[in-house]
Design a protein around this nucleic acid. Sequence first.
DNA 1: AAGTGCCACAACCGCCCGGAT
DNA 2: CATCCGGGCGGTTGTGGCACT
Length: 278
Amino acid sequence: MVRTPCCDKTGLRKGTWTPEEDRKLMAYVTRYGCWNWRQLPKFAGLARCGKSCRLRWMNYLRPNIKRGSYSKEEEETIVRLHDSLGNRWSAIAAQLPGRTDNEVKNHWHTTLKKRFKHKPSAAAKDGKDNSSQDPKLRRGTSREKEETKLNDVDHLLISSPNPPLILESSLSSQQPASGDQNSSITTDNTVVSSKLDSGSDDNSTTTNTNTDIHTDTLLEAYEAESSNFWTEPFLSDINYMWSDVSSVVPYEADQFPLLDGEILYPFDFYDQLQGLDL
DNA sequence: AAGTGCCACAACCGCCCGGAT
DNA sequence: CATCCGGGCGGTTGTGGCACT
């Protein structure tokens, strides 16, 4: 089987994301969801690979991301889970609300691995931690993956426009019931859940990148524009979007996901998808 | 002040899986 | 059943900031 490249390598940006790119991606995803990561950059006006967009969103831009240094409890959890699960970072991250697998992985490699190097993991001892040796054994079973999915605190699932877009942050049994930090709303068609934790990052004493700042600013700006920004259902269905675009667009012209000043609606794509008569 | 090394983290790469056709 | 495709995952690399000399 010959795999097609995930993106056309020519003309696509790589490297650090700019605030402008973040703004476009965030605006687009929060507005339309991510019905197709590969197609999304085109409609969002981003010269990026779809996988890059997905990674950026999942690891940085989406709601509920907890930034800053790790608490003692979090580190203990990571060590304990790594001991039993091995390098299954997504599964480990699923038990740490607000943390991404990438972040957990980085923290392990940069800090915890050295600190706990003298303690051979149980997973390694009983052969579970052979993930790095045999790629075929890296992944869990289907059952394990399903459980991981169900327990993923910040699992993001976004379906195609029809059925309606879903952006969910599923509720994990492990997730503390801290209603003051999390808000969620569920409708027939959409699920949007988020945490606006601008005040909860009490231990972010590490490097505060410019993107940290501008992400917060973005959230605040969008919140201000739409009093119920994160909890507002994205699009209940495609007709909703088409019926009166101007009435549902919460952005000013210069804030909408666009390219060179031209608003970019994925109409053509949706049209192809559904074969609708407009 | 300049050079160097280290560290933390963001991002990319390649592989794999599951669903669709 | 074979193939294609999108998405997810883990390993690895690149990069910027900081401390030290």
